[in-house]
Amino acid sequence: MNRIVAKEEFSRDPAVYMMQIEAPLIAKKARGGQFIVLRINEQGERIPLTIADTDLEKGLVTIVFQVVGKSTAALGQLEVGEEILDFIGPLGKPTHMDNYGTVLCVAGGIGIAPVHNIVRELKKHGNKVITIMGARTKELLFWEDKMRALSDEVYVTTDDGSYGRHGLVTAVEQELLEKDRDQGDINLVIGIGPPIMMKFVAKTSEPFGVKTLVSLNPIMVDATGMCGACRVTVGGKTRFVCVDGPEFDGHQVDFDELFTRQRIYPEQEKLSMELFRQQQACGCGCGCDQGEAS
């Protein structure tokens, strides 16, 4: 169950991995925009990750994750053939699919993965899809080929100018929306990436009055609507991202509250990571500071 059948390192700093997990029941049900929750071992935390792709025939679910703390670091160390203790999903509401006309997808960093699954479904529904994909630097870009194969137009940006256009995804978004102002072909913007990027994708589209969906990533526990950890304010109302979302109208989201709520446990997260690193260095698994080498 939940065996890792493929693994690829997309980049090293920051470390980003792609994994394919054997989870046939989930693969069968999963739709664009949904996520899974996993727990590596008995001591592990439940962490949510977006479903980036599925392979129905082989019963596989693809995840792409960036190492940011202990759980993602430990996940990154698992190898092909190993199993993940708990793999739960699909969770959350799928992206609402329709023929919108032209959809502008804006993917930042790790957000490229979830956007991929959505673009695929948008195409199935007969949409024209323009994709903007951005990363800090060239090494951090992935799946450009996949995106080009799926989308009608693709724009690539890097913050440092090492590849594609120099600058932020929102600059291209602004240009495209301006160009489209008279035609009004673009009826939907979907922005997925770091929360700060999503905030600005929504800010950019707001004056154009184009509906904008963002995929929120608050801290979660059960992800079945039972605990309320994932609550955010959207349009002045409290919503639970795991069951009411994860996608919401970006013009209505209280992003600043989301940013604050993502930083509830900074000390604990740091401690967890330090202990994990020590254990790694030591090799005896006891958490002591005495590496085998010393």
Partner: peptide, 26 residues
């Protein structure tokens, strides 16, 4: 917290044993 979250973190996720268990609690 909701009581559900507070108790789930502590009971189900064993946050009272943090950092031996990974889930934190305030």
């Amino acid at each position: 917290y909701s009581a559900n979250e507070y108790l789930t973190r502590s009971n189900l996720m064993k946050a009272y044993l943090f950092p031996e268990y990974d889930t934190p609690i305030v």
